[in-house]
């Protein structure tokens, strides 16, 4: 019965967190004086030359409806919750009018998922292996060197790492394209080739930073497990170091890394932002940047809402699976 209470409470927190988050996102733009509809009308007016006053008025009314700005604040809010949160319908995009926001996100999302999910999984695997070795065999020279590299790179802000890689490997050495230019209209073979070629440098930048973090956390977990009595006992039994490392230390320290993996998969939406902007990679992060530059509020709200849901759901999943994979933890 305790388990059900735990799950129920956790679900309640999950719903509350999402609700507070999206409420925040709803009210922030409305608390600022700039008006997206007026911005769009002035842009249309400057593009088409002159517009008649009645035309402008009709356009204004139509746009206010489509941007969810019609009616009282309460009506706007409930509409946003109903359509956006439950229907993933955020209205038309301003920069690609009148294509719906959801459709455009759907077009860009696969690129982000391809790049970031691959990078997160490779970084997780690599980082855990190196971290395990560094924590379990503290005095080996190779593990000290690898840990040293990880500690040096880890604190540097991500965009500096990406920028330096771009300058060194993209510009000075010219091994990879500086900015991505993926042939989306070419045939399948050429498309995949250009996708891979353009993803290597962004992926390496994500790997460098990501792996560093996993090494540091795995190392501290593994070194504390390695000091436990049962590891000592395994040594007395004469088990090989390899066996102790794999089935004693690894199995006891990997658990919280599994939940942390769930968290960082939920965060790929967020983490890919700077990568995609620096390397001009056509994913959701690039989309967010374009949306900011053209004040596309529907698009900004849509991407941020989805990202809040993704992260809170990943946290929820991580919290719920933890007691299942770790028998030492009980719901409390």
């Amino acid at each position: 019965m305790k388990a059900w209470k735990y799950i129920g409470l956790r679900l309640l927190t999950w719903a509350l967190v999402i609700w507070i988050g999206v409420t925040f996102v709803f009210f922030i733009p409305r608390a600022f004086p700039s008006d997206p509809v007026e911005t769009m009308i002035s842009r249309m007016a400057s593009m088409s030359g002159s517009m008649e006053a009645t035309q402008v008025e009709a356009l204004r009314r139509q746009l206010r409806v489509q941007f969810g700005l019609e009616g009282s604040l309460w009506e706007q809010y409930t509409t946003y919750l109903r359509d956006g949160l439950f229907g993933f319908n955020f209205g038309p995009s301003l920069m690609n009018y009148p294509t719906p926001v959801g459709e455009i996100i759907g077009r860009f999302l696969p690129y982000t998922l391809f790049l970031s999910v691959t990078a997160v999984i490779i970084a997780w695997t690599l980082g855990n292996i190196i971290g395990l070795l560094a924590g379990f065999r503290k005095n080996k020279r190779s593990s000290k060197i690898l840990e040293g590299i990880a500690i040096t790179i880890y604190p540097i802000p991500y965009f500096i790492v990406a920028l330096v890689l771009q300058i060194v490997f993209g510009f000075i050495l010219g091994w990879f394209p500086m900015t991505a230019n993926i042939l989306t209209t070419a045939d399948r073979g050429a498309f995949i080739a250009s996708l891979l070629r353009n993803s290597i440098l962004p992926a390496i930048s994500l790997l460098l930073v990501g792996t560093g973090w996993w090494i540091i956390s795995m190392k501290s977990l593994a070194s504390s497990v390695a000091e436990e009595d049962f590891v000592q006992y395994a040594r007395y039994r004469g088990l090989s170091e390899r066996r102790i490392g794999a089935s004693y230390v690894l199995r006891n320290s990997i658990l919280s890394q599994v939940t942390a993996l769930a968290l960082s998969l939920g965060g790929v939406f967020n983490g890919s932002l700077i990568t995609e902007i620096i390397f001009n990679y056509p994913g959701v992060g690039k989309l967010v940047q374009q949306a900011i530059l053209s004040s596309d509020y529907n698009m900004i709200l849509g991407t941020i809402t989805i990202s809040i849901i993704a992260i809170s759901t990943a946290t929820l999943i991580a919290d719920l699976i933890y007691p299942f994979i770790d028998p030492r933890i009980r719901y409390s």
């Binding site: 925040f24 967020n270 900011i292 990202s307």
Partner: peptide
């Protein structure tokens, strides 16, 4: 704690982007 958890969980970068882009 619900308030705190919300702030821990909300992806800060997108919201910072939202706020600072409104400040232009």
């Amino acid at each position: 704690m619900v308030l705190t958890d919300t702030f821990v969980v909300i992806p800060s970068l997108p919201i910072l982007i939202l706020m600072t882009s409104l400040m232009k």
